[in-house]
């Protein structure tokens, strides 16, 4: 009997003192870090002018676009660089349409392509258009702290709560002051490193910091990276839902 009571007391003490122990080591709680990160990186609507520099095997291609998105279901991208001028992508829920002005033709693309790199880049349509919600999808653990480009960062390891999370494991270096991801490693279920990303610039949009310039590298292919810059960035603005229609796609 005494043994059972002792064990239960030990368990209760451990549960009560665990968060304190975490804070005692000087690290904030992982959940708090994710909350701050989500607060900064999630949005209801977004609008920006984007520029992608896609480097594959030493050759660089430039893609420029205007993008606008509402929630995770509606998005419209129009390419503005000379080679692709007028090409538009419309995303409605899990469906994607492409409009080619020269042919005046619309093509519906299978939904799984939303996860693929946009225009051959390492940035997927979801990366470019969708808000992230780390707390919902991942369990987090603070692994330590490190300086990244002169800024103090918390090293946080995220493990997928369910196999449906975009990545099985993430290691993030999160700015301790601005709550923006400075560096990130994305791992597959096999444990293999798939991609890395690095924030080159973070901007203050309203009261929050937002990564506006990142570079992503595929680790499955050598000499492949995409620099993605968002200019004229606006978050949580009021948007007209009428621009996310087939009529708007082909106008």
């Amino acid at each position: 009997m005494n043994r059972i009571v002792t064990m239960m007391l030990t368990l209760v003490i451990a549960v009560v003192t665990l968060p304190v122990a975490g804070q005692a080591s000087g690290f904030p709680l992982a959940a708090d870090i994710l909350s701050q990160l989500d607060a900064n990186s999630s949005f209801k609507t977004i609008r920006y002018s984007g520029r992608m520099e896609i480097t594959i095997g030493g050759e660089t291609r430039i893609k420029e676009m205007k993008a606008v998105a509402m929630g995770s279901d509606k998005a419209l991208i129009e390419f503005t660089n000379p080679e692709d001028r007028g090409i538009r992508y419309l995303k409605l829920a899990r469906e994607l349409w492409m409009y080619f002005p020269k042919e005046d033709d619309t093509v519906k693309i299978s939904g799984h392509l939303l996860k693929e790199g946009m225009m051959g880049s390492d940035v997927s349509y979801e990366d470019a258009l969708e808000s992230s919600d780390y707390r919902l999808r991942y369990r987090a653990e603070v692994k330590g702290s490190e300086e990244v480009e002169g800024r103090k960062a918390w090293i946080v390891e995220l493990s997928a709560k369910a196999p449906t999370a975009p990545y099985d494991r993430l290691i993030m270096w999160i700015d301790a002051e601005r709550w923006v991801t400075l560096k990130e490693e994305m791992y597959a279920r096999s444990g293999r490193l798939l991609k890395t990303s690095k924030t080159l610039e973070a901007r203050k949009v309203g009261s929050r910091w937002f990564a506006s310039s990142i570079v992503m590298e595929s680790k499955l292919r050598k000499d492949t990276k995409t620099a993605f810059v968002m200019k004229d960035l606006e978050l949580d603005l009021v948007l007209d839902a009428g621009q996310f229609t087939m009529a708007a796609l082909t106008k």
Binding site: H112, R192, L194
Partner: peptide, 15 residues
């Protein structure tokens, strides 16, 4: 050979 593919969970895996 390194193969990467979209899994049944709609995310990427590679091995």
């Amino acid at each position: 050979i390194l193969l990467s593919a979209r899994t049944i969970y709609d995310n990427d895996n590679a091995d």
